[in-house]
Computed example of a mutant assay.
Amino acid sequence: MTNKISIIRISAIAAALLALAACSGGGEDGHGEAGEAHAAPTSSSAGLPQGHVTAGEQLASAKGEATGQSCVDCHGAEGNAPIDATYPKLGGQYADYLAHALQQYRGGDREHALMSSQAKSLTDQQIADLAAYFGSRESQLRDLHDVH
């Protein structure tokens, strides 16, 4: 009788482990089949669709209707050469941060004479694309604690 109970317990534990493995995706790396590439996330933490770097690059050079300026007119090539020291470098910044900032400008929660009007007509996809593009550029950001 003891052997029968042990076999039932072992079977139950094995079934539970198989169920857990199926829920976690299994595989050697815990992400599906061994060596299988993971699909890109479908949205950002800002609730936007997945951004496309190529579309963002084109959009960054397109003149906005509100001001007649493009992103690179003020923030420079790849977002790393602003025309004014008060304009931030965008290249290499976290894409989610950039997306959130553009959403705030668009919604009026953050204000700037040029940025508020530039962002007002941007769609969620355009914001995601711009954030993906500038986030993918080489970073020239620096920690202000290191400035002497």
Results as ranks from 00 to 15, higher is better:
A62N: 06
A55D: 11
Q69M: 12
A62V: 03
S117Y: 09
A95H: 04
Y94C: 07
P82L: 08
G56Y: 01
D109N: 14
E33V: 12
M1I: 00
L144H: 13
I13W: 08
G91A: 09
A62G: 06
F134P: 07
K120W: 07
I7N: 04
H148W: 09
Q93G: 03
A101M: 03
E111W: 12
A46R: 02
L18S: 15
A99S: 03
T123R: 03
T54M: 06
H145F: 08
D124M: 03
D73T: 09
D29N: 14
I5T: 07
Y133L: 04
L90G: 03
S117D: 13
T67D: 02
L59K: 06
G135W: 00
D84L: 14
S43D: 15
R110G: 00
E78Q: 13
G79R: 00
A46V: 00
P88A: 07
K120N: 06
G35C: 11
L114G: 01
S117C: 12
A22D: 12
G64Y: 00
C23E: 09
C23R: 09
R142D: 10
A95L: 13
G26K: 05
I5E: 04
A132K: 01
T54I: 09
L114K: 00
Q93D: 05
L59V: 00
A37L: 11
T42W: 07
S116G: 10
H31L: 08
M115K: 04
A62Y: 01
T2S: 07
D109M: 10
E65K: 14
S43H: 13
A21R: 14
S117F: 09
I127V: 04
R106I: 06
D124C: 02
C74A: 07
Y105Q: 02
H31K: 11
